[in-house]
Design a binder for these strands. Structure first.
Lengths: 117, 117
DNA sequence: TGAACATATGAACAGCTGTTCATATATTAA
DNA sequence: TTAATATATGAACAGCTGTTCATATGTTCA
């Protein structure tokens, strides 16, 4: 079956105008990388924990019950996207939520999934 | 090398209390499914378009420049997580952003990635 | 009716992801 | 120094994802 060029509703001019309102590739790609980072149970749990207080890697390891390696890899992902930040404190590496955007992201998503149960 | 049970900073009691503040598995899993849905360039672009106005599938197809199948699959994913909703209008299926949570999610993420360039 | 348009869906494949294991690096304290 | 603790990283593998292709289903109108 052949799909024609456009459906009845399509107005090429208006479509063009709408496309301009979509952020450019680079931005969209960075956004999907951020959501990608938030798409893991382990990393989400890390953020929920850090939302309560800043923590070192081994505290997170204890709380999450996964290997230290998994925590560290997860933190790296979150760090690379500036979702968490780091501070050295002696032999400990302290992680904390980067900013309010991150808290809001988590909060909105939580409200969304809890809304309908 | 052997990793001991807990590091100096770990206080088992406090850790336990923190764990209780993390939503339970079911909720975390639903949240990661939502973020997972937001983690695709195509689906993000769909949401950016729908943010401007509700659209039928073939309008989206035109705007996105991917196959109709890809759009439809993407929409199903978004629909299943209640990120978009659907309305029939004659032979057209009109999609629109589900609620304000979704707009805020997008907005927060956009601000986050645009903050530092 | 049936032809044309609009949308959905299943299969399949290439590419990506998260975990663990093994190991390296960094810091402290003795 | 060295030992012990704390964290990071590379490799590798199983499992998941997004796209397209092919096709099915739904809707309108002549």
């Amino acid at each position: 079956m052949f799909m024609q060029d456009k459906c009845d509703r399509v107005n090429p001019e208006k479509i063009k105008a709408l496309i301009k309102r979509v952020p450019d590739t680079e931005v969209v790609t960075r956004m999907s990388a951020v959501f990608q980072a938030l798409q893991s149970d382990t990393r989400l749990r890390i953020l929920f924990l850090l939302r309560e207080k800043e923590m070192c890697v081994c505290e997170l390891e204890q709380a999450l019950n996964v290997t230290q390696s998994a925590v560290s890899h997860g933190l790296r992902t979150l760090r690379q996207l500036d979702l968490v930040r780091v501070r050295r404190e002696g032999k400990f590496t302290i992680y904390y939520i980067a900013d309010e955007h991150v808290r809001t992201l988590i909060e909105m998503c939580l409200e969304h999934v809890e809304e309908k149960v």
